[in-house]
Design a protein around this nucleic acid. Sequence first.
DNA 1: AGGGTGTATGTGCTTATGCAACCTTCTAGG
DNA 2: CCTAGAAGGTTGCATAAGCACATACACCCT
Lengths: 150, 150
Amino acid sequence: MTSMTAEITPQQLIVWRMLQRAQVGITRSLETELLSRHDLAPAAYEVLHQLSEAPGRRLRMNDLAERVLLSRSGLTRLIDRLQRDGLVEREACTSDARGLYAVLTEGGERRLTEATPTYLRAVRERFLDLLSEEELRQCAAMLTKLFTGA
Amino acid sequence: MTSMTAEITPQQLIVWRMLQRAQVGITRSLETELLSRHDLAPAAYEVLHQLSEAPGRRLRMNDLAERVLLSRSGLTRLIDRLQRDGLVEREACTSDARGLYAVLTEGGERRLTEATPTYLRAVRERFLDLLSEEELRQCAAMLTKLFTGA
DNA sequence: AGGGTGTATGTGCTTATGCAACCTTCTAGG
DNA sequence: CCTAGAAGGTTGCATAAGCACATACACCCT
């Protein structure tokens, strides 16, 4: 345990502030790219991506909300928008009349396919390509610790 | 150069997704703590903090907006709220009649002082304490590379 | 069955934020 | 000087997201 009561050193705080700035910077450039090129907000991309990986290209609303880190009401509205744009549909769940599936449409799949290169390129340019393989391993190890700690 | 045209490996993508989740998790718990204990949004904390470190406890709006990573209009509204709550004041700039200073008030300083332990504790618990000193050094090195690359 | 408790989803309202348009003031070039 | 354009700041508008509440259904226990 590095510190139960120890103070934070200025260096530590700098790391934290850098992390925040890096995060904001990467996120914003990703957002700008996705919006300008494909008219997709990052959360919308995330939804399409999760659906495309799910069996039957569908997920329950609740499940999907957790995966994209959105509140349930937030997801309701986001799916509303995606449905309006024809990228997703809602479908009743036969086994549970309360439940709804969000289902990826053909159009949604197409849009995802178009947007994915943009997404990956941004992630590479702003993150992955800037680090060595060794650093990426270190990064993964740290992130794992952050999760098990939280 | 790891890759000019290379594809992203699944492992790399996992690191990226973990990073996003870590960021969201830390940010949200910080937000919850600051809001519930001190009625301060993270951005508001950031403003108070920047002002407290600035000479004369004041910064030009534009300058402040950049430091807290907010658009100018976003900062205008945030300062409106902080002013309404008596934590900050606006003051004219003598050398440039266009300019305004945001100035930290006594009350703002008090609020910042109250909130800082909460802020630091959250950052420690969710981030700093979970990593070794060596890891923190690695992290700093990576972040530096991310900035120079961007 | 029948009722109480918990779960899945949607809605009303509030808040935060960005972009584009707008005034005011500054500054540089003629 | 005076004008054109840039810069600082605010405002109008639109969007996104969350919380609290409402509704419909499910499931368990007696």
